[in-house]
Design a protein around this nucleic acid. Structure first.
Lengths: 108, 108
DNA sequence: TGTTCATATGAATATATGTACATATATGGA
DNA sequence: TCCATATATGTACATATATTCATATGAACA
């Protein structure tokens, strides 16, 4: 697209794009994706890592699943989640890059 | 970050990241950014292009301005807006790439 | 100065959504 | 079978937010 300013972006596609980016508009979901970027984790590990209600985590995992951003496999009673999109890290990076300049995180 | 899984993402930073991505979670804002990606436009041009209420456009432009995603200059009575972030196009591209596979836009 | 045009903004409203609580489902073991 | 553990899900509620309407601001010009 950066090579082709005539690329057509339909209105329907804009709604789908917005839905996709909704996955990243919440700090909890970002923390989940970041945690899974480090290593795959089961739900209770995420609950401990983020120090949040198990129900809240499960609800957010469902959101991410429905957008195919995370996948999981069952291992006995536990569900092991991992990232399911190679772009996630790059997207987060670009966001970080942007707010670096704006919010001043360079000093750390 | 994709090279360094030990990169530390603080909780505060996650909130800032979420705030940044909120800019992309709405179809109107995506349409505005996409329009400005083609060429700079004044508010009334955007109103015509998106066929939306002038107030709605102005409100969304303010949101995008506050995140430094668009900039504008005054020319007499009109305000000419343009993109103010080199990552916008790439971010949209990656979103498109993702939903291409998921929602099936490849046939166009 | 008064009028028109372009844009911005405050308030109100409707809708979307994140979280907690309660409960359901499913697996493994005694 | 009974119980404990892990996870999922329906509901309710509080909060966030996109849009519209009304109005304000400010520039150009008669």
């Amino acid at each position: 697209m950066s090579d082709n300013k005539n690329f057509k972006l339909s209105e329907e596609m804009c709604y789908d794009l917005a839905d996709f980016f909704k996955n990243f508009d919440d700090a909890t979901r970002i923390r989940i994706m970041y945690a899974l970027f480090q290593k795959e984790m089961c739900v209770s590990e995420l609950v401990a890592e983020l120090d949040m209600n198990q129900s809240a985590i499960s609800h957010q995992l469902r959101v991410l699943r429905q957008s195919d951003l995370v996948k999981f496999r069952k291992e006995g009673k536990t569900a092991v989640y991992s990232l399911d999109d190679s772009h996630v890290a790059t997207l987060l990076e670009m966001g970080i890059e942007h707010i670096r300049h704006k919010n001043g995180y360079e000093e750390e």
